[in-house]
């Protein structure tokens, strides 16, 4: 238990979540289910990134009473992955909404959500 850090737990969870999402994307036939798989994949990547930036036993990168200004470098976790993940989450919802809008129009055109019925590009 001593050797296992919090970042190990987070990264393992994240990697398994990525694999679950990929499995969902590859095996499901319903388009909405595939979009759900994509959003799970997204969340998994975010957890892995934040886990990589975590330093054992350090606190959040906000300089207030809990962190002395001079000692900041030894007391906080890495702020860079957190900033990247923050923007990635906001982009993620944009992509999800775009995919859902496509799915809605596809349904209105073809009256089905089954991905195997879409054979416009099949030859």
């Amino acid at each position: 238990m001593e050797q296992i850090g919090l970042s190990h737990i987070a990264i393992t969870t994240g990697i398994l979540l990525i694999l679950t999402g990929l499995w969902g994307i590859l095996t499901q036939k319903n388009i909405i289910k595939m979009i759900i798989g994509f959003s799970l994949f997204d969340t998994g990547i975010h957890i892995v990134m934040v886990g990589v930036g975590y330093v054992e036993g350090k606190t959040a990168p906000i300089l207030d009473e809990a962190v002395q200004l001079k000692e900041a470098a030894r007391q906080i976790v890495d702020p860079l992955p957190q900033a990247m993940v923050l923007t990635a989450i906001v982009i993620g919802i944009g992509i999800t909404a775009l995919m859902l809008a496509y799915a809605l129009r596809l349904y209105q055109k073809n009256k089905t959500l089954d991905i195997q019925k879409f054979n416009d590009l099949k030859w």
């Binding site: 975590y54 330093v55 054992e56 906000i62 300089l63 207030d64 470098a73 702020p79 860079l80 957190q82």
Partner: peptide, 30 residues
């Protein structure tokens, strides 16, 4: 697990408060 910050993060933590002046370093980076 990492025991200390890498060089970039250390630079942000040491110089961030005087260069940018934001208490929240994530905001300073973004």
């Amino acid at each position: 697990p990492d025991q200390q910050l890498n060089e970039v993060a250390e630079r942000y933590a040491e110089k961030g408060p005087e260069e940018v002046g934001a208490a929240n370093l994530v905001t300073a980076v973004i």
